[in-house]
């Protein structure tokens, strides 16, 4: 890979200052960025490490909200997000153990890979993405494949998840990459049910609103029986056609509801 200057700030303020340099990019766990740099698809002049900043790490539950620091690893979320078991289970099934010890929730959400797990949890939970300058609702945050509402140099400092009454995540794994070929996160709150789908759409994570309406009035797998997820705009590749992914969305939604209920 091309060489770059490595900077390891000890605070968010120092990191923000270092990222003012036009050639600078943030580095979180690096489990996506480093392979990308090896392929010379990305060539930052400076990498600003976010993993040595204590204020960005931690999991805490308070009054129905679970807050996770942006640089918290998947392994730590899996171990400590006990207030939101479906989220802990999702984190504990990303990649493999070694990847989970480096990869972070902030890195995953900032990258917004269309097949990543965390975006579905954030969107289905109506989470709030907290940055060094503002708070962004998940519904406004995800803006298409690898695209988010983040501005240049903006850092995810944390994510706030309202804890649901019931929730479950079902991932149909692409067996080589362990990313979601399709994944569905269902979360039931007092004011309704949210269903978010990852891995399936060319636009990245999205909400299946028809299923949300059906499940909000009847939270059972049968409630989804009469629905059909549209194949329009879904990914078609050697692993599966758009129609195959559309069917997976329905099947996984039913499994998630059955597992949550």
């Amino acid at each position: 890979m091309y060489n770059f200057e490595f900077v390891k700030p000890g605070s968010v303020a120092e990191a923000v200052a270092a990222l003012k340099d036009e050639e600078a990019q943030p580095l979180s766990g690096g489990q996506t960025l480093i392979p990308t740099m090896k392929q010379r698809l990305n060539m930052p002049g400076t990498l600003v490490s976010l993993t040595g900043i204590p204020e960005l790490v931690g999991v805490s539950a308070d009054g129905g909200t679970l807050t996770i620091g942006g640089a918290t690893t998947h392994a730590q979320v899996a171990a400590e997000a006990t207030a939101y078991p479906a989220l802990a289970a999702l984190a504990g099934n990303i990649g493999d153990p070694a990847v989970r010890n480096r990869g972070t929730i902030g890195g995953s959400l900032a990258n917004n890979d269309p097949a990543a797990c965390y975006p579905s949890a954030a969107l289905a939970s109506g989470a709030t993405i907290v940055t060094n300058v503002r708070e962004i609702a998940a519904d406004d945050y995800f803006q298409g494949m690898f695209t988010t509402a983040l501005d240049e140099g903006e850092i995810i400092t944390g994510v706030k998840f309202p804890t649901p009454e019931k929730a479950n995540y079902q991932k149909f794994e692409q067996p080589a990459s362990r990313f979601a070929l399709t994944g569905v996160f269902v979360a039931k709150y007092a004011d309704g049910v949210r269903v978010a789908v990852t891995g399936a759409s060319e636009e990245g994570v999205f909400r299946w609103t028809e299923a949300e309406a059906a499940l909000s009035s009847n939270f059972s797998a049968d409630a989804v029986d009469g629905l059909t997820a549209s194949a329009d705009g879904l990914i078609g590749d050697l692993h599966g056609t758009p129609e195959y992914r559309a069917n997976l969305i329905k099947v996984l939604t039913k499994r998630a509801v059955a597992a949550a209920a």
């Binding site: 490595f6 390891k8 580095l27 690096g30 489990q31 480093i34 392979p35 990498l47 490490s49 993993t51 392994a75 153990p97 070694a98 990847v99 010890n101 480096r102």
Partner: peptide, 19 residues
């Protein structure tokens, strides 16, 4: 390439030495 960093297994091909 798995080694333990501060007691935890990581892939040392996907971590910078500086980290």
């Amino acid at each position: 390439c798995v080694v333990h960093v501060n007691g935890k297994p990581v892939k040392s091909c996907t971590m910078f030495a500086n980290e």
